[in-house]
Amino acid sequence: MPTPRSQEVDAQIERAREVMARISQDYRGAGRRVRRKATSLLRRLIAIALANAALLVAAIVAGLILPGGIGLFGALAVMFLMVAVTLGIALAPAGRAPSPAKLAQVDIKALPAQTERWLEAQRPMLPAPAATLIDRIGLRLDTLSPQLAAVSNDSAEAQEVRRLIGEQLPAFVRDYERVPDTLRRVERNGRTPDAQLVDGLRLIEQEIADMTGRLAQTDLDSLSTRGRFLEMKYREGEGTN
């Protein structure tokens, strides 16, 4: 029978595991943000390189066709165009995140990625404690997305997912954003709006994880059945040889 001391040690070990799991999730979330920014930068660099290459090719072709070439002024014009194109692409604003109204209509297979884009756009307007939960929700949405590949838009599963991440999550965050900044850290009914936001995001994260598990249940059952079949066919078969 476990003693109170051993129970306390087990509880401390479990708490340490939970902390390590949260730290791991935080690092994964930060890594995803870095990769997303790096991907965006790489796309801009490729676009700049292609646009400038097209201008150079056009200038060379024009120089070959025109009797006197493009001349000094033509070369300067090409240089100015290349600088303008480079600055235009480099400084162009990123694509706008979808609106909540758009999220309510997007195809279920694209909904997790679109919801994550919308949630990332809200990050600057949310308190610091919510940032970690945004990263965790992003990871949950990444895991959920493949599970929706075979789900029909009209199915009960799709409607459940849409209600949570396409309707309730945006509505919850927007309710918080409408609260005046001066009142967000003022207690009301024992909790501040900041605390309510964090608690709500934590519940949403867990519900997305539960949804992913339910959607994957068929695959998990199939894997378990296949594993038992292999054990019966090969491991138990070895004992009869």
Rank of each mutant, 00 (worst) to 15 (best):
T3L: 08
E8A: 15
A16R: 14
A16T: 10
E18I: 06
E18R: 15
A21G: 04
Q25D: 12
Y27H: 12
Y27F: 13
G31M: 11
G31V: 00
R35P: 00
K37I: 11
L41E: 15
L41T: 10
I48G: 07
A49K: 11
L55F: 04
I60V: 14
G63S: 12
I65E: 09
L66F: 01
G68C: 04
I70K: 00
L72V: 13
A75F: 01
A75K: 13
M82L: 13
A84L: 14
T86K: 10
T86N: 07
A90L: 12
L91W: 11
R96Y: 01
A97N: 07
S99D: 12
P100F: 12
K102A: 15
K102Q: 15
L103C: 10
L103T: 08
V106N: 10
D107Q: 13
I108A: 05
L111Y: 03
T115K: 01
R117L: 10
Q122W: 04
L126T: 06
L126W: 04
P127L: 03
P129R: 08
A130F: 07
A131H: 15
A131S: 13
Q147F: 11
S155R: 03
S155H: 04
E157W: 10
E157V: 03
A158I: 09
A158Q: 05
E160L: 07
R162G: 03
L164N: 07
A171R: 06
Y176Q: 02
V179S: 01
E187S: 05
E187C: 00
G190Y: 10
T192M: 06
G200R: 02
L201F: 02
L203D: 15
Q206D: 09
A209H: 05
L215A: 02
T218M: 01
L220M: 10
D221R: 14
S224H: 11
F229N: 14
L230S: 08
E231T: 12
G239Y: 05
T240I: 13
